[in-house]
Amino acid sequence: MSPRAVCAGFRQQAIQFFTDPQWIIPSLITPFMFTMVMLFLYKDQMDGPVVLQAVLGGGVLGMWANTVFASSFSISYDRINGTLEPILISPSGAYSVLIGRSIWSTAIGLANALLVFAIAELMFGTGLSVADPALFFLTLTLTLFSLASMGMLIATTFILTRRGRILSSIMEYPIYVLSGAMVPITALPEGAGMISLALAPAWGVDAVKHAAIDGYSSMFGVGILEDSAMLAALSSILLAAAFLVMRRIERKILETGSATRY
């Protein structure tokens, strides 16, 4: 991995973000829409935990929408724009650039989540209070890290196929549901709950709820430390998997010559 290329990917994504209006939709408008829908759904039950579930749900949905959009779109953009080839034949390769872009998406995702909380308070007067703000911020950041890792893994596969943008749409909703952001995992069918156990963001959402709600009863029956440990471990596995998949995909691209097809 090249730190210079990571920074370059971060900076390039940041410039694209501020100069290309289409980024505003998934990054800023979509999370607000999600939160509004959630708050309207729960508006008759505006007590602490329910509101928090709604706001957290909106925040995580926004973060994931942003991450998955950033992952798929940036690679599709490179493919269409003919910039994938110069990246692939550079000594740094695509992996470092993707990490940089994911870090940018994570930062924007975090800003999003915080904005969602602010707007919920301002527009709905949710009276939201967070039990442990420091832990809340930390677990939220870790959750973003897990989402970014998943985004990385998905982005690497998008290098291989020109159907990246379609896949990104397919990927959005399962994660919303299985992460427990939309509804508690305990409300899901048994099989789906098992899949959630393997998803880093699900442990992240559980950890965030631990930090935010006094006396929170874990979806997995564990404490915040166990949640965070699982979150970190699964995220690291995702990152390592992304790296390995990337190596395989780079080789596959050489064999198929598919980097310029779109």
């Binding site: 090249s2 694209q16 550079s90």
Partner: peptide, 26 residues
């Protein structure tokens, strides 16, 4: 260099494009 207009980030300036690729080349 491939012919045609592809292979650049259009929302970036010429200088920013060169800086991006020079970072990738270390």
């Amino acid at each position: 260099v491939s012919g045609g207009e592809k292979g650049l980030y259009y929302r970036l300036s010429g200088r920013q494009n060169l800086e991006f690729f020079s970072d990738l080349h270390g």
